[in-house]
């Protein structure tokens, strides 16, 4: 446990990055990224392909170890050789583009597995919570379906529920609608919107500009491993200052 952890209070940023550097071999993917956000905030990270967005959010739950800099979640330093991974991953939930559900388990079992086997919580209580989560993501009746029997949008909502079952403080979403049919994108975005409205702290990497504009309190634009520009959505989309941002937005909008 990091010494700072017990002293964290909600007046301090819940996620705080300072000068984060990350290289894969000789390729510098993150070249000094800093930002911070408060509990309950929703931020969106946008940027061209390969600019390091996925790497950035994967650093936050230590899926990717960083080379230099500091990442704090509720005061816990992530860039620490003695990191308590379990404590960190209880706090930070993650949803992937390809859902990554466990194919040999039903929807309900997917949601129950981690609380049961990682947190060793009581089965009855876990099952009750899992059923509530299934309802929350509007998948009533799909409890006993296997991932292969669900549509992409349904699988992604199970994946969100699975992550929520750990009762995280922060949710990371990495282009979670990028692999979906246009019709099912909406279902998933609705689920995320509801979460955000309930006050969940969310970091979203997304190409859905409309959704980003609507939901985010702050937008970060990354290019080649740095944050080029950021601001509240109204300002960011109306009058981007940086040339690269303008170019990106003109291509995507």
């Amino acid at each position: 446990m990091s010494a700072a952890a017990p002293t964290w209070t909600a007046e301090r940023p819940i996620v705080e990055l300072h000068d984060v550097h990350k290289s894969f071999g000789t390729v510098e993917v993150l070249r000094g990224v800093s930002f911070s956000m408060m509990k309950g905030e929703v931020i969106c990270v946008i940027g061209p392909s390969g600019s390091g967005k996925s790497t950035l959010i994967r650093c936050i739950n230590a899926l990717v170890p960083i080379n230099r800099g500091s990442i704090r979640v509720e005061g816990q330093e992530v860039n620490d050789p003695a990191l308590d991974k379990l404590a960190l991953r209880r706090k930070v939930g993650m949803v992937f583009q390809q859902y990554n559900l466990f194919p040999h388990k039903t929807a309900l079992q997917n949601i129950m597995m981690a609380p049961l086997h990682v947190l060793k919580q009581d089965r009855r209580e876990v099952e009750e919570r899992a059923r509530l989560l299934i309802r929350k993501v509007r998948l009533d009746g799909k409890e006993d379906s296997y991932p292969g029997e669900l549509s992409g949008g349904q699988q992604q909502r199970v994946a969100i529920a699975r992550s929520l079952a750990m009762r995280p403080q922060v949710m990371l979403f990495d282009e979670v609608t990028a692999a979906l049919d246009p019709e099912t994108v909406k279902e998933v975005l609705n689920t995320i919107r509801e979460l955000a409205e309930e006050g969940m702290t969310c970091i979203l990497v997304t190409h859905e500009m409309g959704f980003a504009r609507e939901i985010a309190g702050h937008i970060y634009f990354t290019d080649r491993g740095v944050i080029v520009e950021h601001g509240p959505p109204a300002e960011f989309f109306a009058s981007p200052k940086d040339e690269r941002t303008r170019q990106f937005l003109s291509q995507i909008l």
Partner: peptide
């Protein structure tokens, strides 16, 4: 590998991941 990553992000240990998630698959 995403199976390993998602298990990892749910705080499964490598041993748990192997026995509960990877091998059964």
């Amino acid at each position: 590998t995403p199976q390993w990553e998602s298990a990892d992000s749910l705080a499964f240990t490598p041993r748990q991941t192997m026995w509960m998630i990877i091998l059964p698959q």
